[in-house]
Computed example of a mutant assay.
Amino acid sequence: MGNEFDKILKIIQQDLPLVSRPFLTLAESVGITESELLKTIEKLVDDGVVREIAPIYDSKMLGYDSALVAFKVPQDKLQMVADFVSSCPTVSHNYERTHPFNLWFTLAVPPDTLSLEDVVRLMAERTGTLDYLVLRAVRTFKIGVRLDYESAHEKESVGFTHKPYKPLKEHEKEVVRVVQGRMPLTERPFFEYAQMLGMKEEELLNLLKDLKERGVLRRISAVLYHRRAGFVANAMSVWNVSEDRVEDVGNFMAGFKGVSHCYERTTGESWRYNLFAMMHGRSEEELYNLAKHISQEKGLDDYALLFSTKEFKKRRIKYFSEDFKRWLKALT
């Protein structure tokens, strides 16, 4: 791929500016026309490199409860169980991984419904799953995939700011309900959203800026198909770190470009690992080497790499939709 292509792939993974013509602003930053940029993005989508350009919201700041869940599933039942799990509208990621707990998925549950634990219990009962984990995030050190590096060992400066939760007003929920999913690849996408909402474009942009300032809207950016972008290896590294060292180690891990997400999570009787770092690289060897480097630098010996072997689902949640309630009603 040419240098211009690499620049485009890099900028669309960053934050789309909240201005009337965001693609014009991005195009000018790499010295091409707005039309050329939009055509390139369309080609990347058609070629299966880019999934979409879409808003990324913080589910907890929207009032949703969320957790990482793992099921231990017999291999001959894995596809059946994975299909059922994927049928849940608020499961966004669902993967087979290299571990006895072999099915891993992220679940978000909207407010004013069953608890997350009750939903997981119902899912386990429905699939005959006896052994499962519900791992909640305790602290976040990094979140956000940007596949724009040559080596997973490259470093970057990361700062994660925790914002206080503030319930959304009804008109804000309606904005989220409309401004989600695949963004229109047009000169004025926010104008199109504003028309759907019966608002002025400037009013919508100001509201989105406020949601971003409050931590509700993380960013608007491209989501890639990792393998087609050259990042064929994906591992969830899990680490057993003493509580007094979690902050230091978490911040250290978050500083690597090859780490997209880094969380401290809850543990349990059958799960001792409390620090999670999602790693992306061009080979499994690269990720083994990165984990080894972290292990040696921080003196950590109790860790594992869970490589993803099959993607069952990766899709943005449709927030403030009735889909989950209908799914849950059918389940119960």
Rank of each mutant, 00 (worst) to 15 (best):
Q75S: 10
G48A: 10
M1A: 14
P110C: 10
M279L: 15
R326G: 06
V178C: 05
K325C: 07
I32N: 00
F84S: 02
N94V: 02
L122R: 04
S242H: 13
E269K: 01
V119C: 10
G198I: 03
Y273G: 11
P55S: 04
D210M: 06
A291T: 07
E286D: 15
A27K: 10
A27I: 13
P74W: 08
I8F: 03
E286S: 10
L185F: 12
H162L: 07
M183G: 02
M253G: 09
Y225G: 00
R227T: 15
G181R: 06
H171W: 11
H162V: 03
D118K: 10
A330D: 10
L103N: 03
C88L: 05
F320D: 09
T332C: 00
P167N: 14
W239G: 03
T113F: 08
L328S: 04
E156I: 06
M278R: 05
F5Y: 11
I12M: 04
V49P: 00
V232R: 10
E192I: 04
P74N: 09
R177S: 11
A222Y: 06
V49T: 01
I12Y: 07
L26H: 05
A70N: 08
V109I: 06
L331S: 05
L185T: 03
K313H: 04
H226V: 11
G198V: 01
I32L: 01
H293N: 14
C262A: 12
